[in-house]
């Protein structure tokens, strides 16, 4: 549409108001979305702690099953959970292999070569480890998906009373992560235009990564100045423009986070599977 004219030329672009961004939901689960961000950290933590007292198949599988069911009730169906947690399963399989090969030997030995001894005992421990890794990590991943760092920072300061200088300093750093992606792209372009873009790709990526680190430290020092210029760190009486509180639903979530491992570990004790991991040495 743009013809060159005697007076100059024009380029027509879409108006900026029409360029929209999609808003991401806080969580796919209606339940998790209503929790205080701090609870989204505390819940998986409470849930995981009792599991560390044992390494057995029963507690881990019950916990995993209960978590998946509860997440389903919370609005995320198991297939979505599975899809969202794929790296967990890779890690769990890896742990399975390692423990199967090197775990404590007991019972029938199926295979032995150098340090590798696959026995009934090591296979049992491997299955238990596999389940435990998944039982701990799956709820963690789902709880934290879509978490907003700003809200988390507010919660850390107002609910856990962590020092605000550090929390907001870290928050500012975290926000810069979004800039890092843009910076990485821009650095790539500028290096290309300066003739530094050819050659060994590994060396190029390393040198560009170093450039990104340098640039981000540079940004961080400037950002620190900008924060100080707005009075950050000047006085100890900082107020909070956003309120972060625990509501009834948070307490419900803590109760669930206590009940689930209680059932899981309780069943293991009742069925005799519970064992202190280090005592069987």
């Amino acid at each position: 549409m743009s013809e060159s004219q005697a007076a100059g030329m024009t380029v027509t672009v879409t108006p900026p108001e029409q360029r929209h961004e999609r808003v991401k939901p806080a969580s796919q689960s209606w339940f998790i979305a209503r929790l205080n961000p701090v609870s989204r950290f505390i819940c998986p933590l409470i849930m995981s702690l009792p599991l560390f007292t044992t390494l057995d198949v029963v507690s881990a599988s019950i916990q995993l099953a209960l978590s998946v069911i509860l997440l389903w009730i919370g609005g995320i169906n198991p297939f979505v959970v599975l899809r969202r947690t794929w790296p967990v399963w890779i890690a769990a399989v890896g742990s399975f292999v390692t423990i199967a090969l090197y775990g404590r030997t007991s019972g029938t030995v199926h295979f032995a070569w150098a340090a590798i001894v696959i026995s009934d005992g090591s296979l049992y421990l491997a299955v238990a480890t596999f389940l435990r890794v998944a039982a701990i990590a799956v709820p963690s991943v789902i709880f934290v998906l879509g978490l907003d760092p700003t809200d988390l920072a507010d919660g850390l300061v107002q609910i856990l009373h962590l020092p605000s200088r550090f929390v907001y300093g870290a928050l500012a750093g975290i926000r810069m992560f979004t800039l890092l992606q843009e910076d990485w792209r821009a650095l790539g372009l500028s290096r290309r235009s300066r003739g530094l873009g050819d050659g060994n790709p590994i060396r190029r990526v390393c040198s560009q990564a170093f450039a990104l680190l340098v640039l981000s430290i540079r940004r961080a020092t400037k950002l620190a100045t900008a924060m100080e210029a707005r009075g950050f760190g000047a006085s100890d009486t900082r107020t909070m423009a956003r309120v972060s509180q625990l509501h009834a639903i948070d307490w419900v979530s803590y109760a669930i986070a206590l009940i689930v491992p209680a059932i899981a570990v309780g069943t293991a004790i009742a069925t005799g599977y519970w064992n202190l991991p280090l005592t069987s040495n």
Partner: peptide, 15 residues
Amino acid sequence: WRVVDIVVASIIAVA
């Protein structure tokens, strides 16, 4: 700790 220490340590941590 100065503010710049906090922010730079944070960005190293983020990276």
